[in-house]
Design a protein around this nucleic acid. Structure first.
Lengths: 123, 123
DNA sequence: GTATGTGCAAATGGTTTGCAGTGGG
DNA sequence: CCCACTGCAAACCATTTGCACATAC
């Protein structure tokens, strides 16, 4: 447990957002200017392997990271790229029944238009 | 509708697999050696926009492409990276109810171990 | 005829890695 | 003390793009 890892961990835990590696790096560098980009990526992998955080593949651009919690889906706005949590209680159990094998993890991304983008209308 | 696009379209339609752009490129080049990588990517984007195919973000490595069909999830084996289809009838309706807005699309990837990898045991 | 698509090759962006040095336990 | 972790910079890989030429309609 290095200072670097503790810092990265804290940033993710304290953020209400789903941060990209670049955002985490930028924010961490404000407190620890010498921090290397590679160190951020290496620690993110470690933390993901430890189950401390969860990596989210995004439809466009860089991956984002979410503090690990009860598995849940994400709502992605096709208009502005905003990401919100989507509680999905019971989905995992339903999936295991459908799959017929233990489900290690799942990732659900639902595309929609957020209220703001829906107002503007489909461009 | 160019010869190039027709070829790419056919390759995807005829393949039982979920191909990567690189695989599509390699296969297309066997029939049309002058084909450029950029052309493949450009056409894949066009076809995705037209709803002819669907792009699948993968947990590791390059994206894959699926001929468009009824929306369905995918089963990803964490052991060997194999991808299988997972029928998810009714999920979209359930999601719309949960979200309270029209669902444009969704992507569900379920991580598991395929029978072969389960035998070998968790490494 | 002309907008659209193509081939090429170089650029981009996100992420990974080899290496020598540092520091946590 | 030693091994895992760091900083740095170069490498990597998938994908995108600028440009001059070709082609579908």
């Amino acid at each position: 447990m290095t200072r670097q890892r503790a810092l990265i961990s804290r940033i993710i835990r304290e953020s209400p957002e789903h941060l990209t590696a670049a955002a985490i790096y930028a924010q961490a560098r404000r407190e620890m200017p010498g921090l290397a980009r590679g160190t951020v990526y290496r620690n993110l992998h470690l933390m993901e392997a430890d189950g401390e955080i969860r990596r989210l593949e995004m439809p466009a651009g860089a991956d984002r990271y979410d503090r690990a919690a009860a598995p849940h889906g994400h709502l992605y706005c096709d208009g502005c790229g905003t990401l919100r949590d989507l509680p999905t209680a019971g989905l995992q159990t339903a999936l295991e029944a459908a799959v017929g094998a233990p489900v290690l993890d799942y990732q659900l991304t639902v595309h929609y238009l957020c209220p703001a983008c829906r107002q503007k209308g489909p461009a």
